[in-house]
């Protein structure tokens, strides 16, 4: 070609952009560091007032009176943890059952179609779940599910007292429905990553397909499955809208699941508009945000460790 005449500069021209590309993309990456640092900075400095005033006692205090400036986070932490645990209790067996069916037992075509459907479910916005929670789920719970539960398990402390529809129980159920798709999709991928020879060995020994799944594949994938559960837990803890709409928004610690409660995310969403910047009330809400942030960072970290160790083991 004609350009060979300028050959000394051609390789240089072809490489000219390298340092620029490296720097430019590196800057974008550094930007993520900056944003995260800024986020932490705002959460920390934004909550200086209540941290100085209440100290660690904030986490265990149970009175909530914005007018008297008395703030304790316990009812919110309690509501957040209870709804999330209830959600896990329901979602883990169901989600695991789905994942096993989709990854191990179902015929290929059916599995693909059902997986697609369940993953669309994960895309449904949380405000839609809240809408259905208020107008569809709560009435169903009120008329049929809860009376039946109370009739059988009414002696348990968790099913005491009147049921007004909006409650910790309702929030737990709606959260369960919301996190099942996540457990299914992550667990399914982890099951699919189990090496094929594990299955073949079990089948060759005469195991049925269920025995192969339950005694060989699931134990092999157990760490990763725990990872998917922690991932779902982190989502449940941070979920705002659906919980806000059905939990009842009452800052009380009650042993009964049928009583209304409150969650960290819900109180931030509800009371923010009543606060003014810099005021104690708003700073307390920011501190609650900090607590929620810390909770999810820890749970997500555990999830990632479990899933990574699983993926590291498979290769």
């Amino acid at each position: 070609m004609a350009t060979t005449a300028t050959s000394p500069s051609l390789p240089q021209r072809l490489r000219a952009g390298d340092p620029v590309a490296h720097t430019l993309t590196g800057m974008a990456a550094s930007f993520i560091l900056a944003i995260t640092a800024l986020l932490l900075y705002h959460l920390w400095t934004g909550s200086a007032l209540p941290r100085a005033e209440f100290g660690w006692g904030f986490l265990t205090g149970s009175s909530w009176d914005p007018v008297a400036e008395k703030f304790g986070a316990l009812p919110f932490i309690y509501g957040t943890v209870m709804t999330s645990l209830l959600a896990l209790l329901i979602a883990v067996p169901v989600g695991l059952g789905c994942a096993i069916f989709l990854a191990e037992l179902a015929p290929r075509g059916a599995s693909d179609a059902l997986t697609f459907t369940i993953e669309l479910l994960a895309a449904v916005p949380s405000v839609i779940y809240g809408l259905l929670g208020i107008f569809l789920l709560v009435p169903i719970l009120q008329t049929t599910v809860v009376p039946a539960l109370v009739a059988v398990f009414g002696f348990l402390p968790i099913f005491q007292g009147p049921f007004q529809g909006v409650s910790v129980f309702s929030a737990g159920i709606i959260l369960a429905i919301m996190i099942v798709p996540f457990i299914v999709s992550v667990s399914r991928e982890i099951l699919l990553a189990v090496p094929q020879d594990q299955r073949e060995a079990a089948l060759a020994l005469g195991a049925t397909s269920w025995e192969t799944t339950w005694k060989v594949v699931v134990p092999y994938a157990l760490t990763g499955i725990f990872g998917s559960v922690f991932l779902a837990l982190a989502r449940a803890l941070g979920e705002t809208m659906a919980v806000t709409m059905v939990i009842g928004n009452k800052p009380e610690v009650s042993s009964s699941l049928l009583a209304p409660g409150y969650s960290i995310a819900a109180v931030i969403a509800n009371e923010w508009a009543e606060t003014s910047s810099g005021a104690m009330h708003q700073q307390v809400l920011i501190e609650l945000g900090l607590v929620l942030f810390a909770l999810t960072v820890v749970i997500n970290g555990v999830a990632r460790l479990l899933i990574l160790s699983m993926k590291g083991g498979k290769k």
């Binding site: 990456a29 550094s30 993520i32 560091l33 944003i35 995260t36 800024l38 986020l39 705002h42 959460l43 934004g46 982190a234 803890l237 941070g238 979920e239 705002t240 995310a265 931030i268 969403a269 923010w272 809400l285 920011i286 945000g289 929620l292 942030f293 999810t296 960072v297 997500n300 990632r304």
Partner: peptide, 23 residues
């Protein structure tokens, strides 16, 4: 960067709201 991205991804959306408010 990878670790930070995972961290940011896990931040509850309501906390992102607080951040954008402050910012």
């Amino acid at each position: 960067i990878r670790y930070t991205t995972d961290l940011l991804n896990g931040v509850p959306s309501i906390v992102i709201g607080i951040f954008a408010y402050a910012l």
